[in-house]
Amino acid sequence: MLTRLRKAIYRVRGFYEGQLGGVPFRLDPYHSKFWRRVGAGRWEPETYAVLDAHLAADADYLDIGAWIGPTVLYAAKKARHVWAFEPDATAFRHLAWNIELNGLRNISALPVALSTRTGVARMASFGGEAGDSMTSLLNAEAADGSDVVTLDWDSFAADADLSRVSLVKIDVEGAEFGLLAALRPWLEAQRPALYLSTHAPYLAEAKRAAQMAALAETLSFYATCHDETGAVVTAEALTAPDALTRFRTFLFTG
């Protein structure tokens, strides 16, 4: 009863007062349970540590798979400029709301999926609900899917000034297996830190090892790879049994 009353108050007021990485923000009231979890440090504290380590006032940040903005908003307080991509219409609506609630003007938020081509693709959530952070281009055949605009990486990179990007976060629910090959020439030339969430469980079991091995090869030019705990690991970590059955995250640097 108290929780429902609090949610009603937040919605009437128009925002939830919370913290991301210890920094106060006004946040959309419809995700107040999630925002409380973040504020308590129970949602990916290692992610905020990565943002702290690799962003600065003269550097830019590329967030591919921004969802409702828990990393975008925080990064906007640390970086010169933030590029945010979120194709799920429901998630993007809340992302834009959260940006506006905080008056952040150094964010370019685009409702598109970065891809290997410009066009239209279908995507749906593996969780069954639009905007739930599990929407994926790999789930195109789902009955409750929707069409989204895709933007060719090369076209975007040719038109945007990405010379100051120091950190790229990619969390695209399985689309990383196709997208990273397109990004490789730019990543290898510029060498920003790459914070990558992998989604092998969304692939057919027989394809997982080969696809994760291909990811490791694509990113083999990076000098160092860390896992979620901060431990230095080798490329073999991407094809270890738990990387094929879990949603692992890796940080590539150097």
Rank of each mutant, 00 (worst) to 15 (best):
G41T: 05
K207A: 15
K33E: 14
V50T: 13
K7Y: 09
T47H: 12
S166C: 01
V233Y: 04
L114V: 09
V165K: 03
D63Q: 03
H31D: 12
A89L: 11
L20A: 02
V72Q: 02
D58Q: 14
L5R: 11
L27A: 03
W83R: 07
R164G: 07
W97L: 09
L2K: 13
T90D: 10
S32L: 00
F15D: 05
G14I: 10
E173I: 12
A209L: 12
G174K: 02
G174V: 03
T229I: 00
A75K: 02
N139E: 12
L244W: 09
A56D: 14
E236A: 15
I68W: 00
Y48A: 08
T116P: 00
A124G: 00
L183P: 04
T229E: 04
T116V: 11
L180A: 12
F177T: 04
E228S: 13
T249Q: 14
Q19M: 06
R184L: 01
Y48N: 07
Y61H: 07
N98E: 03
E217I: 04
A75L: 08
D242M: 05
L162V: 13
V72D: 03
D132R: 10
P111M: 11
L2R: 14
R117L: 02
Y74H: 09
F177G: 07
G128P: 04
V165D: 08
R105Q: 11
A140V: 04
L62R: 10
L73C: 06
D132N: 13
N102A: 05
E141F: 04
R4E: 09
V38E: 01
T249V: 15
A243I: 04
G127C: 06
T150G: 07
A89N: 00
D132W: 08
T150L: 08
D52Q: 10
T253M: 05
Y16K: 08
F92K: 05
F247R: 13
L55K: 09
P241V: 09
E17F: 05
K77V: 00
Y61R: 06
S136F: 10
S136N: 07
F85N: 07
T198C: 15
G39I: 04
T249E: 13
V233H: 11
I99M: 01
A79K: 03
V112F: 11
S166Y: 06
L55W: 04
D159S: 15
I99V: 14
A8S: 13
L62C: 10
A59Y: 00
L162K: 03
L162C: 11
A235R: 15
T229C: 06
P241Y: 09
A75F: 00
A210F: 06
T47Y: 00
F15Y: 15
W43D: 13
V23F: 11
A216M: 02
A193Q: 01
S136G: 10
W153Q: 02
G18W: 09
D132Q: 07
